[in-house]
Design a binder for these strands. Structure first.
Lengths: 333, 333
DNA sequence: TTGTATGCGTTATCAC
DNA sequence: GTGATAACGCATACAA
């Protein structure tokens, strides 16, 4: 048959090769693969047949160049290694890969400057859109493309997916009150999320006539340990803004000989995978990271398609474990 | 609304615009940005000046098309959400982003078929190379591009980065023996890694005249719980192939009223972030996931550059905590 | 319905 | 050292 070009065997077959074999123009081949306009069924089948024969499918590279967009979705995480973000990432990936898209990854390191640079980098790669987790730059991002924000600091950022943190705080308050809390404390952290959790917690506690001690932290276990040590002696119930920090609080209480949940009840936040492993098992307000990722992926897909769906607010639930169940026991004098 | 056509005002300046303003040809502009051949300092400065003025830098899209490769590195993880893999991912990212590359993500779900499809997908995007974690397909991957394997099942896979699992088993054995182990058990899992850990463990134990009970598991906490329950009464030391599974073992021992480390000493594997949170704090053979990622990133970079470095074997260390130190427990369960 | 021709933004190969 | 110009693989306006 036709003499193949010297390097023909190695090089992946292109649109030209398929067109030649099917006896049509490359435009027709392109049309077949871009189900936009109509192609005569016979021609179409012939093209598909030959394409399959040579293992052809349109190269993303050429396609990207001419369309000015890729089938890539940029995802910007504060820290790629943090388990919670890993779960979000997986939710995103699970969702978008069914529509043939892929994730291009970047990190922001909780720094607005770095975040913006990362976004610019992704934009240069013509990502169809970006999902930004815990954005610091918020609406200050280059505006040429689609964004979906998961729990951004900026309350004005568009296309949001987030947890109802206020509600989370209320749930924690209700749980601790049910456990007989008389003197509650909140171990918080910087940022909007913690502030909202605290608001819900304090409001609900105030409604029950309780005032809340505020103890600062930074989500780290160590800061939880310090916070736990600094807890006033009269505190008998603690709501902690994050599970890892709660691990520190539990340890501090332990070291002080204060029994959980007998003397002090504790509720964490996130319901991360460490919660059921702690001693005692930690009750926690569940932050469904995977669901957040799924919702963000869906929203991104719809915004990219032009059918902008509404923002998503996920309602948290409380996962009750040992740390908040005040077992009846002889009270020490 | 449908995707808006790129409006002229926002459109990024291209190589032509820069060439025009600098009064040179586009070839010269290209040369300036590809520090390959030489350009007269004066011309060079003028080009750089104008490029900065219009905010130009070469578009990855055009560049990818003509070079047949991107500045993307494919990373294939069994499961994006698993913390250990998250740490690996971060190590990779930290390393390659300093050379301007980005991570294109994919999942294999521990399935050779899925893994191969993922690789093909990445290949079509012209990734410069792939890092595959815990590959099931091994050397059966399409061979047209660079691969770096982190802990592949296939012992024949090229460009490997992995932990010395045998050594890890030896370390665990030594630790348990130092704690007075007389009757040790190993809680394992399917796969090459666990088998190697067991080999090191058994060998070292045999040298000390100890025989090892084998109990099967699958890395899950639940399987650890079951394994812990199935442990023969005479066992006084347990080495568990993974920390999460070790959490299950600890809980089972707890429930049986067997005190750790007083009655039974325990050593886990991975030294994941849950190890220091368990009760008692778990001694564990450290698997430096971040370091593995860094090493893989470096190796990938070098292989892509053509200077294939040697394979990397990382030597594990034992992190000693409470669970392996046989002393009277301060606080009974 | 189909083919022709142009352009996407860049690099690389030639000449000069 | 520098400038034309031909690819790269594809989508699409326009013509037929």
């Amino acid at each position: 048959m036709a003499t193949p070009p010297p390097d023909g065997s190695v090089r992946a077959a292109g649109i030209r090769e398929v067109a030649r074999r099917a006896g049509v123009s490359i435009a027709t081949v392109s049309r077949v693969f871009n189900a936009r306009s109509t192609v005569q069924p016979g021609t179409r089948d012939r093209v598909l047949e030959e394409a399959r024969a040579v293992g052809y499918s349109p190269s993303p590279l050429g396609r990207n160049l001419v369309r000015g967009r890729s089938d890539l979705l940029g995802v910007i995480l504060p820290n790629t290694g943090f388990p919670l973000y890993g779960a979000v990432l997986r939710g995103i990936e699970d969702t978008i890969q069914t529509s043939g898209m892929s994730v291009l990854l970047a990190s922001s390191r909780d720094d607005a400057e770095v975040e913006i640079r990362a976004v610019q980098h992704l934009l240069r790669h013509a990502v169809d859109g970006c999902i930004v987790v815990n954005s610091r730059a918020g609406s200050g991002l280059p505006s040429e493309r689609v964004y979906v924000h998961i729990a951004p600091e900026d309350p004005a950022a568009p296309h949001r997916v987030e947890l109802d943190n206020v509600r989370g705080g209320e749930l924690a308050a209700a749980e601790l009150l049910a456990g007989g809390a008389r003197c509650p404390a909140y171990v918080g952290a910087p940022g909007r999320e913690s502030a909202e959790r605290e608001r819900g917690f304090v409001t609900r506690m105030a409604a029950a006539g309780r005032q809340v001690y505020h103890v600062p932290g930074d989500y780290s276990e160590d800061s939880g340990l310090r916070a736990g040590m600094a807890l006033p002696a009269e505190v008998d119930a603690v709501f902690v803004a994050g599970d890892l920090m709660a691990a520190g609080v539990l340890r501090a209480l332990h070291q002080q000989g204060r029994r959980v949940p007998t003397d002090v009840t504790v509720v964490g936040f996130d319901d991360s995978l460490i919660a059921p492993l702690l001693y005692p098992r930690l009750s926690s307000v569940r932050q469904p990271a995977h669901d957040l990722g799924v919702a963000a992926g869906r929203l991104a897909l719809s915004v990219i398609a032009g059918t902008a769906g509404p923002d998503v607010v996920i309602t948290p639930e409380l996962v009750r474990r040992e740390s908040s169940i005040r077992v009846p026991s002889p009270r020490p004098p």
